[in-house]
Amino acid sequence: MSIQFDVRTRVREDLRDLVPYDTHPYPNVIRMDLNENPYPFPEAVCQEIIKKLNSDVFTRYPDPGAVELRQALADYNGVAPDNLIAGNGSDELIQLIYLTFGGNDRTVLIPVPTFSMFKIHARITGTGVEEMRTGEDFAVPVQKLVERARAGIDIVVLVSPNNPTGTVIPPEDIMYVLENTSALVIVDEAYFEFKRETIVSHLNRYPNLIVLRTFSKAFGLAGMRVGYLISNESVIKELNKIKQPFNVNSFSQLAARTALKYRQLFDEQIGMIIEEREKLFMELQGLSGVTAFPSQSNFILFRTPVNSDKVYQELLKGGILIRNLGKVPGLEDCLRVTIGKKEENAIFLEKLGVILRDNKE
């Protein structure tokens, strides 16, 4: 007698319709879809990393507390090392927060549209999700959000600058939320370096504040998967109970520490990205029928008079990969383009212009 096994029946019922995250690794295209730093990783930083490599990086487990990295991050952010946790990208840290403070009978409130992984990780951890639509200008309705948060919300998510809209939540609005709810408030500052506006300086005032940052954007370390979390020691203590012990590998810790040491080189690249962003924004605004939304990040959200699916596919045929957001509620016929190098932006604009002219009604 053989026993029948159906793996689908063993999957949690609430996860059975979850779709795997897929970025489609298209070869031979200009990638302007994932908000990465388009410039080469600085040679001086590469050489310093190579110089510091030794056998232990490969044969020994990494420092479980990322002590040296946390000290460098403390100096960079003006906080104490005990206010920090390093993570295997922000994704791990989001999941860690939900595992610690979310779960069954807990609910997270998320203004949308925003970074989709906040909702996905909530589902994975069994945390309930409530979404709140932002206004036409993508502004977070702070008063409404606070009223809802007071009525049984456990975690509030605020992303500033927001992905995919590029909008910023004013610090006074974030502080209003922190002061008027007992919920844990996550402020995702993944794109902080492109705006230099942060709530971290108010950390000591708010015991319910968690700030997320990443090395994947401004510091060009997307391939290393390094993120970090800033909060008060009481919150860090609880998170450390759940955190995996060897979550950031030795090579990534070394790369992140070295990048911070040479951050002036990255500041130069950030300056070029911001300059190109402003040029690209003006060029997009000049295209007939296109609405470009102001951005304080390293990408621009824009809406076209042509169906976004068609624009996306035509650009892909022309060797340009961007992000199609047309199926996201509130972002109909919208796409997001990462700021590239000057020549990449020019190619993108040229091909987009041709598509719009060829499909003009």
Results as ranks from 00 to 15, higher is better:
274 I>A: 06
216 S>Q: 06
208 N>G: 07
208 N>L: 10
26 Y>K: 15
105 D>Y: 10
206 Y>F: 12
144 K>I: 14
93 L>W: 08
138 F>G: 10
42 P>Y: 11
272 M>S: 01
197 E>R: 04
89 G>E: 00
244 Q>D: 14
71 Q>G: 01
314 E>M: 12
295 S>D: 03
6 D>V: 13
89 G>N: 06
50 I>W: 12
2 S>G: 03
271 G>E: 02
264 Q>E: 12
197 E>N: 04
211 V>K: 04
166 G>F: 04
199 I>C: 10
23 T>K: 15
361 E>M: 00
160 S>D: 05
193 E>P: 06
103 G>A: 09
65 G>C: 13
300 I>A: 09
322 I>C: 12
191 Y>I: 04
45 V>I: 09
118 F>V: 03
306 V>D: 03
175 M>G: 07
182 S>V: 14
228 Y>E: 03
270 I>M: 01
215 F>D: 04
342 K>S: 08
137 D>N: 12
139 A>N: 13
258 T>C: 02
167 T>F: 01
153 I>K: 09
168 V>C: 08
190 A>I: 04
312 Y>W: 05
291 T>S: 04
140 V>F: 08
158 L>C: 01
178 L>D: 01
194 F>V: 09
78 G>Y: 14
77 N>W: 09
226 V>P: 10
234 S>K: 11
47 Q>N: 05
46 C>E: 12
346 A>F: 10
239 L>S: 13
